[in-house]
Design a protein around this nucleic acid. Structure first.
Lengths: 172, 172
DNA sequence: TCTCCTGAGTTCGTTGACTGAACCGATGGC
DNA sequence: GCCATCGGTTCAGTCAACGAACTCAGGAGA
């Protein structure tokens, strides 16, 4: 979202949330994180985002406690960005917004299908209609009939197969 | 959100939605519309938004079918902006994002309380936990313990009393 | 009729975030 | 020694947001 993203003077929890996750690119970074993207390079390749912006956003998300930076190898030292519990709780809001876009802004069918694996039902409102709350690891993302993926980056290719949310995406 | 808000190359319904409702100020305009704000002047006074930006955003929302411009008096001719059915369906997503902000970005208690009047229960996930789906007109917004409203514009003052969602706010 | 006021914008110069390309430092492979 | 990769930082140019001033139409009062 946004630009100069402070909504000072708005005593409103939505404004506070938007100052953090309403900035331009941030929701898409989080969407990628939910499907398992963790590395700087993968975010970069999949989003076509300027490097400086990606670095700034990831840093802001870490500072806010939405993501955490974790060492995954020592030689050479490499770190990856993973969602914290606080970050994972953004899932219903982001999912709902995506579902709204799917229903109102697209003509072809859904691009991605979300299934709660233990019971097999399609997700509604970011949670399972029959089970209630949902562990994200139990949710499967699968390409839907509306998906037209022409991208060749590693993340897009991996997402052409069914995956579980949060399952780390390994591209190397 | 955003600046130059096209996420071309992202074949993703979330990106499509963000191109419309992810722009800077747009979510707050919609939030105000849900609590009954309809007039250019009221949006202006309550949001402290630059006039040019407000005009552009309202026009974009009308073009997208999220809001509609309706004549409410003829002499002098005056029009107001009301949510369409498509726009009202954004409520769960916006509400959830606000709730996330309430839980994670604020120390004092909730600023606004949302109640489903027919059954009296507090809203969860933008809908009623006992009744399921919800008519927005049946939802009451009430100031909560965390609210510190120092603003003196007509909208802020009106929101210090309980109101129903979508109930037109008359300030004149 | 003349003047003032209000609502709803538009215009315009300035500011500042986003963009993309180039550069940098550490590490590892050959 | 040379080259490639990962994860950034730096920098000049662009474009949207900002805020103040201006416009225009239609009353209201004198």
């Amino acid at each position: 979202m946004a630009l100069g993203t402070d909504y000072s003077g708005q005593d409103c929890s939505l404004a506070r949330a938007l100052e953090l996750v309403g900035e331009r690119w941030t929701p898409l970074i989080l969407r990628d994180a939910f499907v398992g993207v963790r590395r700087y390079r993968d975010f970069l390749d999949h989003l076509d985002i300027p490097r400086a912006v990606l670095a700034a956003r990831l840093q802001a998300l870490v500072d806010a406690g939405v993501m955490a930076k974790e060492r995954y190898q020592d030689s050479p030292p490499r770190e990856e960005y993973v969602l914290t519990a606080k970050g994972r709780e953004l899932w219903p809001a982001l999912h709902l917004l995506g579902q709204w876009g799917e229903q109102h802004l697209t003509e072809r069918g859904p691009r991605r299908l979300y299934t709660h694996l233990p019971c097999g039902s399609r997700l509604r409102n970011g949670s399972c209609p029959s089970c209630g709350a949902v562990e994200l690891e139990d949710v499967e993302v699968r390409p839907g009939p509306g998906l037209v993926s022409t991208r060749t980056d590693a993340v897009s290719v991996a997402l052409r197969e069914p995956r579980r949310l949060l399952d780390p995406l390994r591209t190397s």
